[in-house]
Computed example of a mutant assay.
Amino acid sequence: MYRSIFPRDVFAELDRLQREMQQAIETGPSIRGIGRGGFPALNVGGTQQSVELYAFAPGLDPASIEVQLERGVLTISGERAADLPGENQKAAVHINERFAGPFRRVVNLPEDDVNPSGVSAQYKDGVLHISIKRRESAQPRRISIQ
């Protein structure tokens, strides 16, 4: 008989290869920075007056979250406790997809664009909202034509 150079199930092998490539892309650096797929998930955007950051971290105590802004680097760190039964209890865990443990996310901001004294943070319904005011010199202004 003839023997193929490909595995028996070519489509399963292609699917495996695609998953491995996707994981490599998701954990590698991107044009927007490193950390895609990390915890907490982030949305970063802005207005003319401020930079707005939303960190999606449900189930955390706001006192366990630390936010720092130093030289244009915003750091969000903390720890999420595991909600699994203890080792001494007679229970089996079949699937555990929820992240537990220490976390740290870092966002680089233009240092000359943000005002470190104009930072506010609020945690509500599992979403940490951080608003950082822009410097007056970095805000766009309309120039009238004479």
Rank of each mutant, 00 (worst) to 15 (best):
A81L: 13
T27M: 06
L109C: 04
V106H: 06
V10C: 05
Q146Y: 09
Q89W: 13
L74Q: 01
P116R: 02
V73D: 02
R36K: 11
E87N: 09
Q68Y: 01
A100K: 14
E79G: 14
I145N: 03
Q49R: 15
R71T: 13
F103I: 08
A57Q: 06
P29K: 11
S131Q: 06
I31M: 08
I76A: 05
E13S: 10
R71F: 03
S77M: 08
G46F: 06
S30G: 15
R135M: 04
A63E: 10
S77E: 14
S50N: 15
Q23N: 10
F11Y: 04
R32W: 01
Q89K: 11
P140G: 12
A138G: 02
G33A: 01
H129Y: 11
G46M: 05
L109R: 07
S50E: 15
S30A: 09
F56W: 05
E52H: 01
I130W: 06
G59P: 08
P140Q: 09
Q89Y: 12
R3N: 11
S50R: 14
R98Q: 14
E79W: 08
D113G: 04
K124I: 12
P7Y: 05
V107D: 04
F6K: 08
Q49A: 15
L84G: 06
G86T: 11
I132F: 09
G72A: 00
I130C: 02
S77I: 00
P40R: 06
S30L: 02
Q68H: 08
A138S: 12
L53P: 04
G28V: 09
S4Q: 05
G35L: 08
R134E: 07
A82S: 15
A55P: 00
P29S: 13
V51M: 12
Y54P: 05
